[in-house]
Amino acid sequence: MDHDGDKGGKGEGPRIECAGDRWTLFMGWALKTVIALIAVGAAAASVPYWERADFPVTSLVIYVAGMVFIAMPLCLYYEALLRTRQDHATQA
């Protein structure tokens, strides 16, 4: 069933089968949104430095802190959800 094109009896289209799949999909979008917001926030913090030769330290701090303390735990949680989903699919 691991071949391309093999439907495996899942029906006609990509459907979300259960609440766990919906939560996994939601967390994937949440992770991408958080990463984008952190990047936009860091870019916005660097705007005052564009005309000067100073390095935008504030932007770097926002980006690193956001990625380490917000995005990384979300990423690890999302990976755990994906692994759980894969384990359930292989057991069924």
Rank of each mutant, 00 (worst) to 15 (best):
M1P: 01
M1K: 02
D2S: 01
H3L: 11
H3R: 07
G8V: 04
G9Y: 05
G9L: 04
G11L: 04
E12N: 03
G13S: 07
G13Q: 03
P14G: 03
R15A: 02
R15T: 01
E17L: 09
W23V: 15
W23D: 15
F26E: 15
F26I: 13
M27K: 09
M27Y: 10
W29H: 08
L31Y: 07
V34L: 14
V34P: 08
I35K: 13
I35V: 11
I35E: 14
L37H: 00
L37C: 09
I38V: 14
G41V: 04
A42F: 03
A43D: 05
A44M: 13
S46L: 01
S46T: 06
S46G: 05
V47W: 02
E51Y: 11
A53G: 07
A53C: 03
A53V: 14
D54T: 11
P56Y: 12
P56S: 11
V57F: 10
V57D: 10
T58I: 05
L60I: 02
L60K: 02
V64A: 13
V64Y: 02
A65I: 08
V68T: 08
A71Q: 04
M72W: 03
P73H: 10
C75H: 13
C75I: 03
C75R: 07
L76C: 02
L76V: 08
Y78P: 00
L81E: 12
L81H: 07
L81P: 03
T84D: 10
T84C: 02
T84Y: 04
T84K: 10
T84Q: 07
T84F: 00
Q86W: 09
Q86H: 10
D87R: 11
H88K: 14
T90M: 05
Q91Y: 08
Q91A: 15
Q91V: 12
